[in-house]
């Protein structure tokens, strides 16, 4: 009956986000909606990172998936409309993930991490150099649905969070969780027990990258402007991994709780400091690894892979 104990929490969070625009927030309304937008988007990123990490693949390429989705959607949005552009962006990110995943199948742990980082940086350089991306000057992106509905971006990001939560929850409470956990803990043993490790790893990476790509697409439609430094930034991957580690790895609840706390904190900090707010992420990462290796959710009780 462990399954039921998490659902009320998850539903509560999601309901809160769904209703946020209708709560009487007064003069803080616009600011809180912006904060909510970023919490939803980066929590979705964190959930998608965690989904991949459950197979032992530590992705530092989430910034690249985000960027591919952002540019894919941003380039196509003026021609085909919001939703098809977002789907296209997600597919571009997915294609990148399959490319990365299929050549790095034999790399484990930190070697996968370093390879994914290199992959990410190569893509960022390309985005800077290629003509159709607008290079370092950047790419203007139209607002969603022609800008007729002010809450469109907010609810698009809510949709991405909903999708990420649903995927993560499914993977956590289905046999897929055992396949992922077995793959993470020992690939050789998992294979001898019949787990199709290659498929498990590629599917996890693909699903994670689709969510990251969607997040990127929606991000561009909110900021209305993309630059390679921003969209392909390693900082995206840093956020995406610090949140689950802070909240609690290999779970749905952990990244959700971590995302609300950390992204909320980050948005508040940005009021005070423009650059360098990642200091907080670095410090939290160190402190959590040293003193709270199972994250916030780990404080609540024993967790299983």
């Amino acid at each position: 009956m462990r399954e039921l104990s998490h659902l009320p929490f998850l539903s509560f969070f999601l309901l809160l986000f769904a209703l946020l625009p209708f709560l009487p927030l007064g003069i803080w309304g616009a600011f809180l909606l912006d904060v909510g937008f970023f919490i939803q988007l980066f929590t979705a990123m964190a959930l998608s990172w965690d989904l991949v990490a459950r197979t032992g693949q530590l992705s530092l390429a989430h910034g690249a998936f985000f960027g591919l989705g952002a540019y894919g959607a941003g380039l196509l949005a003026p021609h085909v409309g919001t939703l098809p552009a977002l789907v296209f962006g997600a597919f571009v990110a997915g294609a990148g993930a399959l490319l990365l995943g299929s050549v790095t199948l034999r790399l484990h742990g930190l070697y996968f991490a370093i390879a994914s980082l290199a992959f990410s940086e190569v893509l960022r350089t390309l985005a800077l150099k290629l003509a159709f991306t607008g290079g370092p000057i950047g790419l203007p992106v139209p607002p969603p649905f022609g800008g007729v509905w002010p809450l469109a971006a907010y609810y698009l990001s809510f949709g991405v969070l909903l999708l990420a939560t649903a995927l993560s929850h499914w993977a956590e409470w289905s046999p897929f969780r055992l396949a992922q956990a077995a793959t993470r803990q020992s690939e050789a043993v998992a294979r001898v027990l019949g787990v199709r490790v290659v498929r498990v790893k590629l599917w996890s990476l693909l699903l994670g990258s689709l969510v990251a790509g969607l997040s990127g697409g929606v991000y561009g439609m909110k900021t209305l402007f993309l630059s390679p430094y921003d969209a392909f930034s390693l900082g995206r991957a840093v956020e995406a991994l610090v949140i689950p580690i802070f909240g609690g790895l290999y779970s749905t609840l952990g990244p959700l709780v971590g995302g609300v706390v950390l992204v909320g904190l980050e948005q508040a900090l940005r009021l005070w400091i423009k650059e360098g707010y990642l200091v907080v992420y670095g410090a939290i990462l160190i402190l959590v690894i040293l003193f709270l290796p199972r994250g916030l959710v780990g404080l609540l009780g024993r967790r299983r892979g």
Binding site: G109, L278, A283
Partner: peptide, 30 residues
């Protein structure tokens, strides 16, 4: 920082040094 995580899994070691890098870079930025 390093000595306490030497017995810990590779993941923790990597993330710790990664965290240190982010911390120092952004401290310098500030």
């Amino acid at each position: 920082l390093i000595r306490p995580v030497l017995p810990a899994p590779e993941l923790n070691q990597m993330l710790l040094t990664f965290g240190l890098s982010i911390l120092l870079q952004n401290l310098a930025l500030l």
